[in-house]
Write a protein that binds this DNA or RNA. Structure first.
Lengths: 342, 342
DNA sequence: TAATTAGGCTAAATCGTTTTACCTGTTTAA
DNA sequence: TTAAACAGGTAAAACGATTTAGCCTAATTA
């Protein structure tokens, strides 16, 4: 239990003035309203003396805002998202906003429940990396002009603000890099749910790179790994793919989690990288510099993603009525680590 | 800008009843107050029909709570803390609480500012991994009976709830492990600020292990790395330590960030692990399974830390008046990776 | 001298809830 | 027959701020 805090009324009473006056002073509106300098000073002194802090819940109720931003991702402990969260936190803090972070585990129902919950909490805006394919919940948000920015993942047909990277191109470049080193049978480990735009785009990039370079096996080496069972599933599929006469020569991991699982599989099967198998992945993680096997990775510009996302979000928050929707697609960068490919 | 939402008044008006009644129904107090089943059903129907959601800011203002927990750590993008955050998020959600996560960058002023901010926001409790040595801010919290649990790091002389691991013992075991493998000149890279209990305890564990095993060079090989410049500082010190006739044979990294920097330094200097140098560290990170050099690590029971922290915190939140302060120290586990030590 | 203006301040409404205390009929018990 | 009990509700205060509209006095202007 918490002790009773002092309120604006206590300040007003103890100075023998109205709380209107105190409020005006606090909000730097006293000059406009012609409160004398002397009184202003008295108020500030008393505030300091009594160590008064405005109750933000009360203020926000009145003002209809919360100075809070909701961030919804699939898993905050994924390094990609935790780095994002950190940067968003820093940028938001500069404007006096805090962050409520929520993880969905790719569960659509949970995502919808979280969106509703954050709306009830009156968060002033949402930044979401959505697992959704159904857009009805988002259409509700849009109809309400609720400030919203989708990051990382796009939802086709949904007209809102987007900050993404060129996943198709990033994947294309990674796979093309493998092909140019002479690898031919290149497998890809995607992750379910596949309808997620980033995953799908990366798959398309992979397939296009194969096709453009006359590797005509289509999706014969494409595997889909369930989100909630990455390690086991990767290991099982991996084992199958490295056997037989059509065994694979290279592997494209569609995100950092899959990549980690692939590396474990490689080590457990005592595969030599890059001699027996080459490895590239989407997402770069600091520690990928140090892994064995090493891994060539598609790095995403996390800082830029966050900066744009907040720029878009604050534009929405401060605009009355429907704001123009913005979209930016940032470039990825292929980080080539020599020993991961021949 | 956001459309006006419908309120409890709208429901009441459109049913021709008082908002008291609606409120009672919503909060499942209608039976106690003898509201007829028929009326209850009418209220629920109307709520559904109008898609009414209570405004949580208003409710919380009235109730003097926020259903929010503040989590303060040095850096949420550190995998140790992001895993903690994720687990706390899950546990808190089950009780209807959300998490506001804040990073301090080890800056004491920032930490104090964040505590104050979270209090103003009326968060119902705080979980802090504190960089503080000054306890005055915390004494204020205690005096107010503000629900508080310190995790990870202790603050000597501060009587509050703690959930920590046995850092001294963890470090001792790691260093002893090195010694038993025959290493003698073992350096340690600590991180500033050193007054932080975890760091200090680990240093003590390191020193004690040396002493207990008759390695009498004291802190000659102990280095302190500034928090905000880990990589460069580690590399610089590392270079010095691996030269000359007293060059070190093993290295104890005091946390995962330092460990990562050490591995980079090792690779850049083409040091062979464990032949030229052995490496152990405090904190285990998933990817440490895969790094080259490999690293033997002291793993912390993150899930258990979180579970205890929330148990303590909710006990405080639900207790009226001063609650008994609790403390638990969990055991660490040394994860031995064979090739990191001889 | 009367009217206007300006300076300095305040009362009360409002945001959307919860909760306390009370109201009005009807039924039951004595 | 009357008081008590009960069923089914409501009005209004409270939470702690912001903001609108105006009040009062003294000074300035015509």
């Amino acid at each position: 239990m918490i002790k009773k805090k002092i309120s604006i009324n206590d300040i007003a009473r103890s100075l023998g003035v109205s709380k209107t006056l105190v409020s005006l002073v606090i909000n730097n509106k006293s000059d406009i309203h012609g409160i004398s300098k002397i009184t202003q000073q008295k108020v500030w002194d008393k505030i300091k003396e009594m160590n008064y802090k405005p109750n933000l819940m009360a203020r926000n109720l009145r003002l209809g805002r919360s100075n809070t931003i909701g961030l919804i991702v699939s898993d905050i402990s994924n390094p990609f998202y935790s780095r994002m969260a950190r940067h968003i936190e820093d940028l938001a803090e500069k404007k006096g906003y805090n962050l409520i972070i929520c993880s969905t585990d790719e569960k659509i129902d949970k995502e919808i429940a979280l969106i509703k919950m954050l709306k009830n909490r009156q968060v002033d805006g949402l930044i979401i990396s959505s697992s959704q394919k159904n857009i009805s919940e988002f259409n509700t948000l849009l109809a309400e002009n609720y400030p919203l920015v989708l990051v990382d993942r796009c939802i086709p047909k949904l007209k809102t603000n987007y900050v993404t990277v060129d996943n198709t191109k990033g994947a294309y470049e990674a796979v093309e890099h493998l092909i140019k080193q002479g690898y031919e049978r290149i497998a890809a480990f995607a992750i379910s749910p596949v309808h997620v735009s980033t995953i799908n785009d990366r798959i398309q990039g992979y397939l296009k790179a194969l096709k453009d370079h006359k590797l005509n096996y289509g999706n014969a080496y494409l595997r889909e790994i369930p989100f909630d069972n990455v390690k086991a599933a990767v290991k099982k599929e991996f084992k199958k793919l490295i056997e037989g006469k059509n065994k694979i020569q290279a592997l494209f991991a569609i995100n950092n989690n899959i990549a980690t699982a692939c590396m474990e599989a490689i080590n457990e099967n005592r595969i030599k990288v890059p001699h027996d198998l080459a490895l590239v992945c989407f997402d770069d993680v600091d520690l990928f510099k140090l892994t064995s096997p090493t891994i060539t990775a598609v790095a995403q510009p996390i800082d830029e993603i966050c900066e744009n996302a907040l720029k878009f979000l604050f534009a929405e928050i401060s605009s009355k009525g429907a704001a123009e929707k913005k979209k930016i697609t940032l470039a990825t960068k292929l980080i080539i680590r020599r020993s991961s490919v021949l």
